[in-house]
Design a protein around this nucleic acid. Sequence first.
DNA 1: CCGTAACCGAGACGGTACGTCACGTCTTCCA
DNA 2: TGGAAGACGTGACGTACCGTCTCGGTTACGG
Lengths: 202, 202, 202, 202
Amino acid sequence: MVKPATPPPKRRGRQRSVAAEAAILKATLELLGKKSLNDVTSEDIARKAGVSKATIYKWWPNKNLVALDAVGARLAIDLMVPDTGSAKKDFTRHLKDTIVFYKSPMGRQLCQFLAGGQNDPEFLDLFRKRFLKPRRDSLLVIWQRGVDRGEIRREFDGELVLDLIFGPMVYRLMAGHGPLDEQEAVAITEAVFCGIALPIDD
Amino acid sequence: MVKPATPPPKRRGRQRSVAAEAAILKATLELLGKKSLNDVTSEDIARKAGVSKATIYKWWPNKNLVALDAVGARLAIDLMVPDTGSAKKDFTRHLKDTIVFYKSPMGRQLCQFLAGGQNDPEFLDLFRKRFLKPRRDSLLVIWQRGVDRGEIRREFDGELVLDLIFGPMVYRLMAGHGPLDEQEAVAITEAVFCGIALPIDD
Amino acid sequence: MVKPATPPPKRRGRQRSVAAEAAILKATLELLGKKSLNDVTSEDIARKAGVSKATIYKWWPNKNLVALDAVGARLAIDLMVPDTGSAKKDFTRHLKDTIVFYKSPMGRQLCQFLAGGQNDPEFLDLFRKRFLKPRRDSLLVIWQRGVDRGEIRREFDGELVLDLIFGPMVYRLMAGHGPLDEQEAVAITEAVFCGIALPIDD
Amino acid sequence: MVKPATPPPKRRGRQRSVAAEAAILKATLELLGKKSLNDVTSEDIARKAGVSKATIYKWWPNKNLVALDAVGARLAIDLMVPDTGSAKKDFTRHLKDTIVFYKSPMGRQLCQFLAGGQNDPEFLDLFRKRFLKPRRDSLLVIWQRGVDRGEIRREFDGELVLDLIFGPMVYRLMAGHGPLDEQEAVAITEAVFCGIALPIDD
DNA sequence: CCGTAACCGAGACGGTACGTCACGTCTTCCA
DNA sequence: TGGAAGACGTGACGTACCGTCTCGGTTACGG
């Protein structure tokens, strides 16, 4: 799956089992709903998927990448970006949704992956490419629209804007040092858009 | 050390070896400069400190908490907060310094700890209490001064302000999806203070 | 090996490595020739056998039972019982051989096992079943022939006869309080067969 | 205790605590009634005796020798040898008593010591000198009387006679492969005195 | 009658082996 | 020839007991 690329052009012998792959991803996803990434063992996955451990390692170089695919495949679906006509509203809306999802047991994976990536640069890289990048690219659309409509100042890089908005969420998700709910989402976008400085209304 | 609490004024029996504790923390710190937290084994620490593994486990429930103490003890020193007369300048200054430190090999620990904490709530909790909290409390002073001087709007919670400023840094440190240097530090505080929205008026 | 029971006619998956098992037993045997049973560590065995410690513990519950199998497998070979036509000569002959063997560095295992068994009833039980019993059963043949030929009084239990002959040897082997050589072997069987009492010749 | 030898001619400083020593021996003895020798840890003894571990190691080189002293001190008392006028009766009587004692929970120490001695020649040596030798010397008296009275053939060494009688018991105590009771005691001495061979004459 | 040496309890220490766990690889047989 | 079963080597884990070593404090001799 990591390198699906070209669909197999027909090979001799038994063909790769699509069922096995699906079972592996499904099992991984379910397990990740219950345990943290590194409490899920490769044997857990194999057993639950009714699959051999060797089959897993045949197609993925390690456990983490299985999880990445499992979560990635799933989230590819629900990538939809609001378009209310206001960048601020769009960001607020998306931030709220994102927070709700990532706080759910099924959604802690973002943190798990970031955590896993700290000890595995290769994995972190893939995580960015296959997980983060697509989402961020979608969100950049909001930013671009905002800039185009004259809602957002041009001098700030789009990437930076995303980090200004989602960085605080990521921080709180990972460190858990403060509340994280719809109210915070509103406050964050409000602050990012309007700034925390008092107008120097001399 | 994890629970030093009240240092008992006089205890019977052989006193806990200060040398051993110091050696453990020192060794841990040095090892953390070279390897990631979970590549440092308890035996590494024991060997390098010239200490028995059992001694480590007598005082710390696991390796992570040793590392926490090691780093904590060290950083307790260099907690100093700028005071230029401008909250924005103070935050910018501190953000720059912090970025430099956390990007150094010796400073990756913040990420390691956040990563470790994802699989160990108890550890995460302690990390917040003993590592995060003191730093944040110090930084709140900057915010408070800003509010008092009329530089910062009262309606934003101080904790939120910290996350607005440091969240983006944490995010980039952990995910590595974008650059992180002095220039970014300036851009972040600029954006957080002034907002990314275009003034509507003209 | 500890519970080979019925060798399953065909099993799925990778078969248990005969080479590994043989290497383990061989290594154990060699180590036992040099050190006492409890100076031989499981890591010694693993290293010398080029095998993982986990593999050892997969098949044997502990080190002692490995040793038991190692020695047992070896001694299964040289179980041969003399048949000179005289029970007394047979016993004497066998006692001599046995003494020579058990006094050799490679043969101290009987004592090691008896020693180990004092702290582990389960091990002692297995030692009896897999080590002692077969040897004693073989030796009972000598006794039976003696009874059949009218050389030995019927009123003594065969088991008791074995203990009368081998008990003194075991005692001296373990306690080391007296010499133990061919001469003693002769004296023991002589005494056991003819008694130490003076005939009341009147 | 191990080397009391000459009572100290008066030393400066605090005197050795008789109470501590007694407590250690008492505690050891009680623990040996419940657990096997090497399940009794030095800390068990220290705790139960209300004594410091260092105090133990100050006077005894290791745990086993403490146990030896503990048991030795106790058994020094009940060394009494029957004198019925018949060596065979005397031996039978003593064998019965001995079996009863050694089969009791408190009396398993003989086996424990022999077991412990297999890995510690020095300990085994001391065990022989301080435990075995005195008992055997006492029992030799029975043998000597038997010889003097013309009950026992002169050509057998006294030491050998003891092993003929007590070897089977030791063997069964340690290996547990056969019953051991009064009946066996009678059978053993009967066999040893009269021999197991059928008289050839008729 | 005071100093000092030898003792004592408590308990921390370095060391060594234990048996367990998860990883990712390898081997065998079956479909 | 792909895949399930499952055994394998590796290497870290945290625990247990050993016998040693400080501590602070307690006798009791000898000056």
